[in-house]
Every structure is written in C-alpha cells, then in structure tokens.
Amino acid sequence: MWEWWHKNRPLLLGGVLLLAALLWYSVNLRQQDETNFLEGVVLRATGPIQSGLDQMINGAADLWGRYLYLIETAEDNRQLIEENRTLRAVLTASDEVRLENQRLRLLLDFKEAQEIATLPALVIAEDASSWFRTVTIDKGSEHGVTEGLPVVVAEGVVGRVVRSSPRYSRVLLITDASSAVASLLQNNRARGVCRGQGEQLVFDFVLRQEEAKIGDRVVTSGMGGVFPKGLVIGKIKSVVRQKFGLFQEIEVAPSVDFSHLEEVLVLLRSPQ
C-alpha cells in the first residue's frame, strides 16, 4: 500500500490540486459579477500601459493614413461629396417628419422620457484570449462606472460592464458566449433572448407561430434589467423553422462592428 502510494503520489497530488482548482472556480462563479482583488490589481497595472500603447498605435496609424498613404483619398473625396448631396436630401425630408412629430407630441401632451446620463469612453484594449469577447475602456469607478452598467454606440448595444477598477473597466460584449440580452422583434414585438456566438448572435425562445423575416430588426426589451428598452441589437440574418419544436432558430447579425470599436458610451443609470 505504502509502495503504491509512493509510486502514484505525484499523480494523485496533481489530481487533488486540479480538483481543488476546479472547485475554487466553481465557488467563485457566485461572485462572478464582482471585481475581485487580483482582477482589480491587474486592471490597474495593465490599464496605463495598454492606454499608452493604444495611443502610440493610433498615432502611427493616423500618420500613415493622413499624411503618407493618400492613394485612395481623391476617390474617397468624390464619394463623400456625392454622399453628402444624398444626405442633404434625406435631411430635408426628415425635417418635415420631425416637425410633424413635434406637432403630434404637443397634441398628445407627450412627456419626454427621462434621459439617461452617458459617459463617453475610449476602447484601449481587447480580450487577451481568442475564446472570449471583452474590451477594456479608459473609465472606471472614479468616473461612476460600476459593474452591470450598459455600454452602447450610435449603431446599437455593445455590452455591459463586468469589471471595474478606479480608472479602467472591462466590458463583456453581447457577442460573447456568456452574454444574454432580453430582446424583441421591432415589427411584431415577439420576445426572446439574444445570445452571443462569437461573431454573430442567436435569437432564442421565439415561438414558432411568430412571424420573423430576414432583415427584421431586433431591439432590447428592457426586461433583463440591464439595458433600456428599444436599443438596436441587430438584424435577422437567417430563420429556420423545424417541423417540430416550440421555437424557431434565428441568427442575428449585430448592428455594431465590434472589430472597429473605438469610442463607446456608458449609460450611467441603469433603467431600473
């Protein structure tokens, strides 16, 4: 017995330690929504370096793009002038709609929804691993950023804050596999949950009988308590209705280009 123990001791000890590490991970899942001491230290230590390096890279890219690599500039300029003309026409038309909206609001005695305070932040780093989808922003608890706050850009939802240190925070993108957002279809208000799939999203739990078409817009429902209602998540990319089963299989293309995230807005007050 003693000989067997002596012979297999490293293996058994390794197994026990690995099991303990797994157990510790499992126990820590309960405090998953809080920033622990070591994570705070890492964020504080790496943040300034990441920020500095990010500025250097952006500076170099600006120098290259604005002063050295000007081959496509003339073509870009021509396209922008054309686009500008089209947008002016659209703007004139939308002015009419805005004025009409104003008149109707007055008629209905509409009260403006209370605006949520926002804080602009710069994305300074991405997730260190290829398996997860998070970004680091240059605002933290000193600026009022805490865990759970929603993060958006003009195009739609980006994610929510999962870790915060005094000056830096980490944001879990909606495309991460562990992210789920209570959502609804803008057209017919069919409810479901948008889950991250790395680069796409899946819209789960939409009943079979609900009408869902490619191109339909998916927005937040405000039910999860994190995101305000009506923020754009993306557009339906594919719909599969099996012969059996309660739900449809819907793929959603996010409206935000996560590979080019630079500036984001943190919504400082949660909808609740």
């Binding site: 690995l18 820590n28 997730d127 562990s178």
Partner: peptide, 28 residues
C-alpha cells in the same frame, strides 16, 4: 492564471484551473 482572468473572459479562477491543468499535463 488568476491574474490572466483580469484581462481574459469574465470567470474568476477559470484560467487558473485551465493553465494549471496544462502545466500538470506537461509535468506528467
């Protein structure tokens, strides 16, 4: 691994467990 959790993913202790498993396998 624990420090890595500060910059990768959102699960405290996950990378500690995974990297420790890789280390033990190599040691084996």
């Amino acid at each position: 691994g624990w420090a890595y959790d500060g910059v990768a993913g959102g699960f405290p202790g996950l990378n500690g467990f995974v990297l420790f498993a890789v280390f033990l396998a190599v040691r084996g």
